[in-house]
Design a protein around this nucleic acid. Sequence first.
DNA 1: TTCCCTGCAAAAGTTTTGCACTACT
DNA 2: AGTAGTGCAAAACTTTTGCAGGGAA
Lengths: 170, 170
Amino acid sequence: MRAGTQRPVAHTDRGETSDDDVQRRLSEYISKKGLRQTPQRRLIVDVFLHAGRHLATEELLAEVRKRNPAIGYATVYRTLRLLAESGIAEERHFGDSVTRYERADTEHHDHLICTECGTITEFEEPRIERLQDAVADKHGWTLETHRLELYGICPECTRKRRPTPPRVRK
Amino acid sequence: MRAGTQRPVAHTDRGETSDDDVQRRLSEYISKKGLRQTPQRRLIVDVFLHAGRHLATEELLAEVRKRNPAIGYATVYRTLRLLAESGIAEERHFGDSVTRYERADTEHHDHLICTECGTITEFEEPRIERLQDAVADKHGWTLETHRLELYGICPECTRKRRPTPPRVRK
DNA sequence: TTCCCTGCAAAAGTTTTGCACTACT
DNA sequence: AGTAGTGCAAAACTTTTGCAGGGAA
């Protein structure tokens, strides 16, 4: 949409945009909006990009404070909102009451969530995506995003529930 | 699973269990658990069953107070939790920070949510359900429930956005 | 009579906001 | 220099909990 400055975007083998590229996109957004670069923001973004996925704000705060204990939680909340606005992060709400953020620059995926241990696994299923488009279309909607979460028992918890393989015949 | 007391369950043409039947199931749950029937609970359940779907707790409270202004909000919160525990209601969390409840006795459906006006429309798509089972299976999970939400612009908002059909050619 | 339920107020947990000060640009 | 950002504390919101009194079984 903006010609001239186009640059090939580097992707990792997971479909992720490189961290540098993300930082670049953020800088662009920040200057475009007349906002400012700060050490706090750089730190928070860095932690966000390298942390495991689906980090709750509070978890991220803890991680950030390991590197700079002076950071206030309001700053973290504000920066994560900024990341969401700039399209770099996406807000998620799973069953609990906290907000989680996830990188928005990966290939699309949905989530399997274990109701026993809380493990979150990602998956992709293009056929489901296609059917979603079809549904939206049929109802006259213009789709923007979606959220698909499958709740159940993960393989490990299933194993724990049955310590011995069911070899006995009742 | 419980023989002897079986009774044919009445369903409406939307796949809903009748209100009487729900009240009966709730009474059963209440007495089984040694709990008590109260006027407040009866009122809240009645409002819940007849109200539009996806009511936020606060909305339900307002509705309830129209009929009995003395009801405390803690009672509503507690009763809705009771309904969820008894399997009559299901908790939902859409984008916002409030908890919503929905009748759990209808045929399964998912949601289309308008990001502009907040309208929620329901839909069913068995082919998506089947693919979900397949995904869970492939990853070794035992599925319990799922949640699929499609976010976009509803037909009405789409219309409002384009007051005049795009007849002009730039 | 027992003890579950209610309503109120206070507490808890998460996120937002107001403000004085700091520090990017 | 001008103004957005920060850290702190207080406020806002939603939901839960403690408790004394009331009422269902």
